[in-house]
Nucleic acid binder design. Structure first.
Lengths: 69, 69
DNA sequence: ATTATTTGTAAAATATACTTGACATAGTGT
DNA sequence: ACACTATGTCAAGTATATTTTACAAATAAT
């Protein structure tokens, strides 16, 4: 369950995973794992990502998640 | 930095913190802490809360968070 | 061919989300 | 007065998000 909306919003701004990670204050692996769908970030990180990419929560994280907790 | 949108959306459905917790599969204290603003839930939990209350992420969790990470 | 950048992935350590159990308080009803 | 429900809070434990270090593979450029 990859997050392709995130991946494409990042591509649209021509940012690498490392760039975005730095803008959000997290590690590159964290961004990678989120795009890959491996886990379940905190909402504050999601908000930081949204602000870095000029999107809202609904645009990047709503729908197509139906996992546990 | 309380989450009053959540508190009022819950009240609008006449649910106790315990009721909502049960619908989301978490403990009552977790809901209490989120409303109180103590922490930083995961996005999957936010999504579960939104679905239980018939709201979207933007409606309950966007704006007025400016904390760390 | 080689250098540089990006991405995918993994294991060990640390920070923190979340649970369980418990107690105190306020409100509502009998 | 007593029972009941909802909320606020705390301390100790467990689960998991996130970091750090590291390595391999793919792409683009020279």
């Amino acid at each position: 369950m990859k997050n392709l909306k995130l991946k494409s919003a990042r591509a649209a701004k021509d940012l690498s995973q490392g760039d975005l990670a730095q803008m959000c204050g997290v590690s590159r692996q964290t961004i990678n794992a989120i795009e890959k769908g491996d886990y379940n970030p905190t909402i504050n990180l999601c908000i930081a990502i949204c602000k870095a990419l000029g999107k809202t929560l609904d645009e990047l994280f709503w729908e197509d998640e139906k996992d546990e907790r």
